[in-house]
Design a protein around this nucleic acid. Sequence first.
DNA 1: GAGTGGTCTAGACCACCCC
DNA 2: GGGTGGTCTAGACCACTCA
Lengths: 257, 257
Amino acid sequence: MAYKRNHGEYVQPFQRLQVQLANLINNTTAGERLPSEPELAKQLGVSRATLREAMRTFEGQGLIRRRQGVGTFVVGHPQIIETGLEVLESIESLAKKINLPVTMGALNIAQVAANAQQAEALQVAEGTPLVQVSRVIRAQERPVAYLIDVLPEDVLTPAELREGFTGSVLDFLLRRGNPPLTQSLTEIRAVPAPSDVAHALEVQRGDVLLMFVARLFAVNGQVVDFSLSYFLPGYFKFHIVRSVVTEHAVVSNNSSG
Amino acid sequence: MAYKRNHGEYVQPFQRLQVQLANLINNTTAGERLPSEPELAKQLGVSRATLREAMRTFEGQGLIRRRQGVGTFVVGHPQIIETGLEVLESIESLAKKINLPVTMGALNIAQVAANAQQAEALQVAEGTPLVQVSRVIRAQERPVAYLIDVLPEDVLTPAELREGFTGSVLDFLLRRGNPPLTQSLTEIRAVPAPSDVAHALEVQRGDVLLMFVARLFAVNGQVVDFSLSYFLPGYFKFHIVRSVVTEHAVVSNNSSG
DNA sequence: GAGTGGTCTAGACCACCCC
DNA sequence: GGGTGGTCTAGACCACTCA
């Protein structure tokens, strides 16, 4: 091991650490446990804080998994759920296509009063009673997505939802066939994991997540569902085809090349 | 019940801190400097490390800006560049529509040999000479996006690029009118900022960024451009319309009303 | 109870900016 | 030179898991 210190080219411990960790992870069989943090920090000649910071990258990529009270484990390259964003489809449906078993956990169905954000999204008055359903989607032995849906009670009641709900509000509404749905308007964000989401997804607070904020529309124009979806990077691949539009007809600017 | 903990209502300093910081930021005029980190840490009764960790959230939202050697400043709510993802359009073009001045900085045009990732994306052999252009897009007094484009030399030479390049490879190719372009296949990711990108965007390493990995196609099917784009959250809003597809029929023309 | 990861502290040194 | 944010350290206590 090269315990290189201030020798000519100055390199932050962090950069050297990432290389060392990458080697360590690559040379460790999937499923095996890494040395404990204090031990590894001592071996690599850094403090525990620095070690943990360097580890965050690898956890974000899904290469390692840290479990409090248990240890840090190397995981194999996960199977990836891939989809184009042009079409709205549930995770369950996508997973089924690639024979990837997914389960639902931490289901919580509750009645809530619309807050400002929900009221605006669903086009109802603040305080309107709503149905909120949150749950975790698990695949490959770990949570990979955290989903929260909020719907007006005239669309879906808690009682209805409790029977036959398997993880997807979209699939539930499609099976019921009512109301007829048309499309979803989805905003895409990158966010640091809030505490509650981090806990549900078993990652560290502040870890990077991909987030969708979506409104689902019925054919009559009503917003029937407002959802927040958090995805663990490394387990999903979202892509989209973007058309190139030429602007001949719009404006002719005189910036010749 | 959602916040129930095993041993009572224990709250970490971190959560308190976020509320305190939010109040402090909201009660500070945009452009003003916050107290220095050691001072603020003392005032709020936490260590500097904890304070900085809590600050990361606000920096990610674009509410504060930290400048080494200068201080931490409160910035107003930024003007947001919003676009649907169905159409590929340059940041410059989008900014122009909302009268938002943007400039380009840190331009670097170089010839590189294709690495494995670039070779696969551009469908060329590894080691093929390519043109790589990286630059920062600045808006509202700060960098907001970091863009890297890689193109085969038969599409664009460094010499061509150096004259009249204003920040967008797409716009450059469209102005030139050759080759004729059709579409871009874009993958959407959430990533922690790598060191070099963090430096270019003047954020902390590990801060959350939205990232596009895209291949631009010509009408003949050739991949003419492979690009990596990093966006600062808080300055962009990307959305997309997703169609609901029922599983019963592939082609159903139910003109329901 | 022993060992793990999760959080926090107090202090140090560095790179950078401005006077 | 003096002050700022950026990084790193050594150590402490906590919550969690499992024997």
